[in-house]
Design a protein around this nucleic acid. Structure first.
Lengths: 145, 145
DNA sequence: TGCGATTAAATCGTATGCGATTGACTTAGG
DNA sequence: CCTAAGTCAATCGCATACGATTTAATCGCA
C-alpha cells in the first residue's frame, strides 16, 4: 500500500516552513528598529502611499480588521502613525505616518536588499518565485472586491 | 529617486501571504476532523513514524518546545496521542498515536490530494515549487543538529 | 565519584492570525 | 423621510509562534 505523505514531502509544509524561515531571517534586521514583520509591511505600505484607509491596507496585506486593529494600535502607541476617522464616512479609519514613522521607514528601506542577499537567489529567481507564489495565493484565496 | 518596494512586490510578502492562503485552504478540509493545520502535521508525522520523541518531531516540523508542548497537550486532551517519558532518558518525551489518532490519520490521508487539486498545479510543478522552497528555507534557517 | 556544563522540556510574555459576533454608521428603497 | 440592509471597525476567544528563562535530568571529565 502507498505510504501517506509526511510533512517534509508536502508543498504546504514547504511553504509554511519557508515563510517562517523568512520571518526569522527578517527578525534580526527589524528588531534593532523595534519593528515586527507585519508592522514592517504596514510601514512600507504607508510609506509608499500615505493616508490609506484600513480597508485598503487590509486588502493589500490580506489582513482582517481583527488582526489590523490591535497591530495598528501598537504602532500608534509607538508614535509611528495616526489613526483618524474619515470625515466623509465615520466608519472608515484613515492611517497617516508621523514624522517618526517616515524616518523609521527610511531607516528600514534597505531591509529587503539585506534579505535578498540572505536568500542567495539572484534577482530573476526572486522575481520568478515571487510571481509563482502570487499566482498560487490568488488561486487559493482571491483578493476581496 | 528610486521608490522603495511595497509589500506586493516583495518575495517575503508573497511567501507570507501564500502560506496564509494555504492555511486557509486547508482549514475547511481539516475543520470537519477537528484538526488545526499544525496538529495535522503532527498527526501525519506520527502516522508515518510512531513513537517519535518531541525533539525529533520538532526538528522535522521546525517547531520549538514552547510551541509544541501546548499543541501536543491539546492533542493529548483530544485523545489522539499519548505523551510519556523515555525510560532511558527521563528528559525526553515520547509521542505515540492512540487508536483514535491512527483512525483520524487515515481519515485525513486524502487531505493533501484535495489540497493539490485546489492549487491547480500539476504534480511536477508542485514538486519543483516544494523543492525550491525547501532549499530557500534551509539556506535561511539550517536544520538543527 | 562528583560537580559543572549541556540538554530537554516546560513556562512566561508578547504578537500575530482568524472565525464569529457586536456596534456604529451609511445607504437604499419605498 | 425613515427604516431595513449593508459596511466597517472593534471585540472576544482560541491557536499558533518564538525569545527568554526556568527546572530537571544527563553527561563529561577531572
Amino acid at each position: 500500500m502507498l505510504m501517506a505523505l509526511t510533512p517534509p514531502d508536502m508543498l504546504c509544509f514547504a511553504l509554511h516552513s519557508a515563510a517562517q524561515a523568512v520571518h526569522s531571517a527578517y527578525t534580526p534586521l527589524l528588531e534593532p528598529l523595534g519593528l515586527t514583520y507585519p508592522q514592517y509591511l504596514v510601514l512600507a505600505s504607508l510609506a509608499a502611499e500615505d493616508g490609506q484607509g484600513m480597508g485598503q491596507l487590509g486588502a493589500s496585506l490580506r489582513l482582517e480588521s481583527n488582526t489590523l486593529t490591535p497591530l495598528l494600535k501598537r504602532m500608534q502607541a509607538a508614535g509611528w502613525l495616526t489613526r483618524s476617522r474619515d470625515p466623509a464616512d465615520d466608519r472608515k479609519v484613515v492611517l497617516r505616518l508621523t514624522d517618526a514613522g517616515r524616518t523609521l521607514a527610511q531607516r528600514a528601506a534597505d531591509v529587503p536588499r539585506a534579505f535578498a542577499e540572505k536568500t542567495g537567489l539572484n534577482p530573476d529567481q526572486i522575481r520568478d518565485l515571487r510571481d509563482v507564489l502570487a499566482v498560487l495565493r490568488n488561486r487559493l484565496k482571491p483578493a476581496k472586491a
